[in-house]
Amino acid sequence: MSNTRHPHPNGEPRASQSDGRPGRNFNVVVLRQDGPGRPSYWERHIVEYEQDMNCISVLQKIAANARTADGRKVAPVAWDCNCLEEVCGACTMVINGRVRQACTALVDRLLQDNPEQIELRPMRKFPVIRDLMVDRSRMFNTLKKLKAWVPVDSYLDMGPGPRQSQENQQMAYVLSKCMSCGCCLEACPQYLKIELERKEGETEEEFHARERELHDRAFIGAMGIAAVDLFNTNPVGRMTATERLDALVAEGGIQICGNAQNCVKVCPKEIPLTTSIARAGRAATVHMLKRWFDR
């Protein structure tokens, strides 16, 4: 499947048994990269099978072992994780070719599908920091661009928020479960990677400003579109809907969506992203006509 230029290390020793039954070992290949701009390379590890393993515990074992299949001592694989129960969104990676959370990628299931090995690689749409760690700050910059918040006057006591229908709450809750994991963006054929190199003599601030500018012009993706949908249906957020709609139809906005609908298929939180995209599309249509005829 992989369109990478680096061949799998087929010549290296493999775990003799990898059918996933207890007491057996299995193979894990990891696409590693020592840092930004460095070449990537595949590395094979043999992991001892244990009950109830997921890809996080596989990586924990690799870290504790820190040896490749051929016994070479290597630095532990770097990866991101935090909650390990699929609510924090940290541990996104590409597992056997498909983007998902490592914590819910159960080893038993993966070995059922492919007894040969488990293949881990970093997301392709974000700059690699190291190994399986990527820089997803673009997503948070997108949320800034879209003004994805409820613009309250103050944090003083002003009584409760507006009443809301159950229907409205349920819709908002589903959208609000988005944990910025980036799966929808990774699987999106229209979302392209942006990787900048820091220029010589450029300060960190200048670099981030340049990066932010580029992020602001690039595609916001399904997660951004759903955020606009969420805040523009909030009774208070709706009051500033125009600002978010302006951002929605600006450069890098909803128009880039190509309706491949991979986003909704890979979303671990089962957020109805394509519904949001269509609703935002409708809002954008109305907004465009208004801008044309009301100016």
Partner: peptide, 24 residues
């Protein structure tokens, strides 16, 4: 231009919608 600016990935994500997107 739109075609050139997409990265088709139907091999990894062989969903109906993605197949239709690629065919489009």
């Amino acid at each position: 231009l739109i075609v050139a600016r997409g990265e088709r990935n139907v091999a990894n994500y062989p969903y109906g919608g993605n197949v239709r997107y690629t065919l489009q």
